[in-house]
Design a protein around this nucleic acid. Sequence first.
DNA 1: GCTAATTCTTTACGCGCGTAAATTTTTTGT
DNA 2: ACAAAAAATTTACGCGCGTAAAGAATTAGC
Lengths: 341, 341
Amino acid sequence: MSEATIKNMEEFSAVSGISRPTVSKYFHDPDSVRQSTRERIEQALAKYDYRPNIFAMNQNRKLTKNVGIVVPLLSDPYFAEIARNLEQRCIDAGYRPTLFSAHGDPNLEIEVLDNLRSLKPAGVLLAPLGRASHRDALEKFCDDIPTLIFDSSVDQLGLAFVGSDNFQFTSHITDYLCRTGEPPCFFEMKTPANPNAHRRRQSYLNAMLDFGFEPNVVSVDGEGWEFEEIGRQGGLAAFASKQFTTNTILCSNDRLAIGLLTACYELGIKVGRDSDCAIRVAGQDGHPHSRYTCPPLTTISHDYDGVSTHAADALLAAIDGHVEPWKSTRLQGKLILRDSA
Amino acid sequence: MSEATIKNMEEFSAVSGISRPTVSKYFHDPDSVRQSTRERIEQALAKYDYRPNIFAMNQNRKLTKNVGIVVPLLSDPYFAEIARNLEQRCIDAGYRPTLFSAHGDPNLEIEVLDNLRSLKPAGVLLAPLGRASHRDALEKFCDDIPTLIFDSSVDQLGLAFVGSDNFQFTSHITDYLCRTGEPPCFFEMKTPANPNAHRRRQSYLNAMLDFGFEPNVVSVDGEGWEFEEIGRQGGLAAFASKQFTTNTILCSNDRLAIGLLTACYELGIKVGRDSDCAIRVAGQDGHPHSRYTCPPLTTISHDYDGVSTHAADALLAAIDGHVEPWKSTRLQGKLILRDSA
DNA sequence: GCTAATTCTTTACGCGCGTAAATTTTTTGT
DNA sequence: ACAAAAAATTTACGCGCGTAAAGAATTAGC
């Protein structure tokens, strides 16, 4: 694998004994050439180790093999995990994924999409920031480039939406909490970053109504993506003003719950379901970290694998021309019982 | 900013009244053209909103403006945070960073570097996996492409190394622990993922020697990057066999400590520095999550900002031709006192 | 105002590959 | 073995821009 060095497809086609256009076809799709031809190319490939120039490839092609993956906040392990899944699926399908993060900033989100444009991607997997996103900029982007929205939906935007069934999430875990102890208060941000939060609140209200319990939503101040800190400070304030009317708190998401647990610790409030515990705390998301809080957090987990599989499959199908009307797919969550509730 | 649509540099040069080669020069470096010319181009730019085709730009250029950022595990918020910093600094300097993660897999690390090659990057910021990295593949890569190594050093590899002073880290926090209570045991992985761990163990041994205390290193089994789980299970095992000989445990890193805290919780061992606490636990890294453990984790934090500034600056300087002999820069950590120790 | 130094324009070619059309070769089915 | 179908080859052009060279225009220095 180290004879004379090959510098372009012309030279490679010479040493492989296959014409350049056919070699070009091979690189575009190895299955598009005859088996015997493919073998000859791959022999030469093993021997000379040539790779087509990616810039020249993409310059003159209407459709590249690039796929953009955009998440709102990569430093959140939840998104990092989803992104990893999506990345792998794109690679397996023969695409070149590139990862981007808006780092919680709506302006950066626009900038990212702008840069993405110049990559002429075949498609994009986009988890929008949510409330803070510039709606019209997203819309324009989706008009130009096949985009699948995941995690946080924005109306009928893009090819389709894939995410979790937030109503099921909250009704399921509320149900569990009601059956096993006092009915939960609902702990959330007053101005949440994305619309999932609203669904969860509504679902909580519905579930409590069904049970015939009085709902109690505690909404705390705080902007941005520092959910743990917001949960901690909001929790301290809520305890101080005795806003929690039962001994059970369902948090709108795990990161908020993690902050609330810290607040409980600071106040000396013992969390758990044992008889010597003062309150129960539950989260929602199945955050990678939730297993290691003290106490480990009872939560309801996204179907990480399901969401990423569905999202990637739907996008790649659309790229391949299987266009379908806009559709919203929401996967069910799985209750994870741990010590906190 | 929406007259007739411009599709290439030729057309743009026409509407701007500047010749194409000059426009090309402008996009390569706006300062390389006369001020009055620059203004005319930027007026047209505001009016017609044209962007050069990135593939055509890079195809025929010996040096692109691409920069690769490679981390071993993006789902670790520590790396996500560092990556975010580096990304921003590259953008500010006019480069186009692309983020990659080896996802803990040495084969993927090689694959990433291989793909990176085809982007003809002007330079690469690489945090290697460490022990598991294929040494010779990294070496070959660094021979071909200006690469700055950060976080975890591999001998004299690349342009330079920028990371943290692990000796200082551990001696500093060991010092603190010794002065404020019983001397610490050292809790680590038997086969750690990267060489920083060895430095920390050695530094612990030195520090204990200086104090005249008997060191006690507890090394636990476990492969891979699931540090929390390794810390938890290793902790359970170590407590069961009474391997901790004092009431203070210094963990080799924060993620291990987080797992250990979970183990303590499971065993009903109260952690903290109050009189009613059974043991003290400290970590190392200043992990983003360490603030929110219960109890909040005493640790020694990387200088995130310093490391990323130094790393980016050194790489960009090298790209600009300011070549210097290989150098290792190790920044000091800052003790963060919290409730756990 | 003059010359010299900058900066810009013109012209021209090449990068590496995509892609289309026409032709030739190989494979397939009977 | 034959014609039809499939695949490969030859030829040729274009993509959008980098870049070099030579000449024209502008600027700077005195």
